[in-house]
Structure formats: C-alpha cells, structure tokens
Nucleic acid binder design. Structure first.
Lengths: 210, 210
DNA sequence: CCCTAGAAGTAAGAGTTGCTAACTTTACCC
DNA sequence: GGGTAAAGTTAGCAACTCTTACTTCTAGGG
C-alpha cells in the first residue's frame, strides 16, 4: 500500500525472493501484533511467515524496534486517511465533521486494538523518531483543521489548538478505555456517535456561544 | 508497602534469603519498567537485582505475566490512594475536588510513565484477571463518588456514571498524550490545573445548569 | 554478452531470556 | 531431633535477537 523509501533504491518486485520483503514484514508483524498483542510478536516468527530466514529482515531493518516503527508509521498513515475520510462525509465546518473524525479514530482503535496500542504505547524507542513525529503532527492536523473550520478561526489560533487538543485527548482516552474493556466499568452503555457529538458540541460550543 | 496475599502463607521476613522476594521483585520490576520501558524488563534482570538466581522468582509467580500483574495491581492501589488524597484536599462536592482527582491521575502518569503505560497498556494477558478488574472498578469508583457529590445525585445514577466516564476518558487521554510527548504537538501550553478545571466544569456543569 | 558490484538472501553461532526439573538449604512444628 | 514444606540453587532446553561470513541473484556498463 504505502510507498516506502526502500522502493527508491530498489527495482521493486524483482529481487532474490520477494523483492518486497520490507512491506511483507510489516504486514506480517501487523498481523502478529493484532493476534498476539503488541509484545507477542517476534521478528523470527514474522520472517517465518514471510518465508525467509530469520536473518533476512535485518537487511531491511536495523533492529526489532525499527520494524515496529515501520508498522507504526504505516498505521499512522492509515489512521489519518480514515480521519480525513470521516471528516469528508459531512459538510466542512459542521460539528458532525468533527465528531466523524473522532468516530474514525475510535473505530480504528476498535478494529486494530493491537496496532493502536502499539502506535501510541511503544513510544520508548521511537519517540524521538523524526518521521513518526511528523506523521503524528499530520494526524493532529486533521483535528485542528476540522476544529478551525467549525469555529471559523484560523488553524493556528490558540483557541483552536486548545479545542483540538481537548478533543483529541477525549477521543484518545475513550479509545483506550474502550479497547481496554474499561468501558464496561461504567454502568452506562453509551453510543459512540451520540457520545462524540455531545463532547464535540460541548468543547466547540464553549468557545462559540460564550 | 502493600500487603500481599503471600504474607499470609509465609512467616514473613524469616526465610531463606530475603523472606520477601515477592515484594522485592515487584519493586525491581517497577524500577526496570520505569527506566527501560514496559517491555524493557526481564525477570532475569529483576532477579539479578534482587540478588537471587533467575529461577527463584518462579517460586512466587507463575510466569512473567503474573509478575507484571503484581506490579500493575500495586500501581492501581497507589493510583487510587493518590486520587483519594487529591479529592480530600478540597471540600466534598466541589468541582475542585473532581479536578484534583484528575490532577492526581495525570501526576501519577507523569511521575511513573512506564508503570502507567504498563497498567493500562498491557491488558492482553491480565485483562480477565478478577483482582485487577476489581481494582480498576475501585479506581473508577473514586471518580464516580466525586462526580455524584458534585452533581448531588446518587452514585448509581446513569448521568453520574456517564459524566464520570467522560471525565475519566478525558483525563486518561490527556495523561497518555502527555507522557507520549504528543502534547507539544499542540502549540498551546496548557496548565494542568486550569485545564482540568475547565473540563470538569464543562462536563459537570452541562448537566447541572441545563 | 560477459562480468562485476552490490543488494538480498542463507546458515551458523554467540549471548540472553523464559521456564522447568531435580536437588539442597532453611525454618517451623510436633 | 526428624519430617515437611517453603524458598532457594544449578543445569538445561527451546526460542529469540542480532552478527558474521558466505552465497546467489540482478542490474548495468563496457
């Protein structure tokens, strides 16, 4: 799916065995993370699934952590795409568009809890990675733009930034509690959409109507 | 600190070498998790730090996961204590008390990001653990009671539950984004206390003044 | 068309880890 | 004191990460 830097230096698709082990490794790891949890994967097992020796991946990744970074980067791309798609289903500037972005976020977490947890949980090694940081800002940018459109303010307005951050932490927390099953602790069964609409309205309205 | 079940079956403090390897293991793992990240610990290294052979821990824990569960359980106890202490610094029923609970939560995450991440991130193996589940409900109970007092409603009121859940997901998300350094993505530098007060007021006020 | 550089793979191995099995040491209780 | 059981030890297996040295395939220039 995503085009990787390696595609530049490589004739793409015409190599020793696969020609595209990097992408296949990422896919395999994504699968493993999803089925066995974020730490329940091994590069050995992923290599096995890709049909190569356990040393082969090290021609494409420096170490285990870099493989994870690859998975996370790809996930962040997909998350952003999902958020943008969500926003696009409602008129720009509407509260619904904001809520839809949140729904896309939560849906992603629910659909791929392992990858989601990995993406936001394993920031030990790759927290300083410039590439991932940029992707993170891109993701946040979607929220910011929606909030800005809704509030009728420029995206760099401090109020917009504050609102976007609030929305993000809300949705992020909700996502985590959902996949951690902590949600059932509260005796209420809240519908995602109405929940997100309520929250979005509360946060955005607060600045608007004041 | 915390009294463990093992203390019952054991003469406590008068054994082979330590008499309390279980607690020392938990402490060692907590340290390792804090310094090397949630997956950057090994039971071998923890045992080494405790001054015992790498097989010794298995007399007290079934496996690696159970050690983690021990650390998480202890952390949840401390988190609850911190939240209760926070609430107690303001008059019962005040919005400040609610915000203080949130501040305790965020402070805990900031002080022990590794343990915090472990507590809420590693729900793969021990998500079904009854003990941890109970502790999680206890933690949530603090929020519920504060919200109930603030709203002047019984704790089992659906509205209280919904508000408490909202508050929790908000604070939870904020905590995670904070320790993930995602916070600096937003160009605003928000003070924790005013942030939490704003949020608490918004969520609780919404039902109150309507 | 060959031949060479280098990318992409393999096999073998060092070192660490999780966990088990079998044994030993210690403390308590009668 | 002797028996019992908890709490520790050593030894060892299988698996994993990552390295080194070797092989194989492909692309591209002369």
């Amino acid at each position: 799916m995503t085009e990787h830097p390696a595609a530049r230096t490589m004739p793409a698709r015409t190599a020793y065995h696969h020609g595209d082990l990097r992408a296949q490794m990422i896919a395999a790891v994504r699968d493993l993370v999803e089925t066995h949890g974020p730490d329940g994967f091994s590069v050995a097992e992923a290599a096995r699934r890709a049909g190569v020796s356990s040393a082969a991946p090290y021609k494409h990744f420096r170490d285990r952590a870099e493989i994870l970074r690859g998975v996370v980067g790809e996930a962040m791309d997909r998350l952003r795409a999902a958020m943008e798609a969500g926003a696009a289903t409602y008129p720009a500037g509407s509260v619904e568009a904001v809520a839809a972005v949140g729904l896309a976020y939560v849906s992603f977490a629910r659909a791929e809890p392992g990858v989601f947890r990995l993406t936001f949980g394993l920031t030990e090694g790759h927290g300083n990675d410039a590439d991932l940081r940029a992707k993170g800002e891109d993701d946040f940018g979607v929220v910011v733009r929606c909030a800005a459109a809704c509030l009728g303010l420029p995206p760099d307005d401090p109020h917009v930034q504050a609102c976007a951050y609030m929305l993000w932490s809300f949705v992020h927390g909700h996502s985590f509690l959902t996949i951690d099953n902590k949600r059932s602790v509260a005796s209420t069964r809240i519908d995602d959409w109405t929940y997100l609409m309520t929250v979005s309205r509360a946060i955005l309205g607060q600045a608007n109507r004041g």
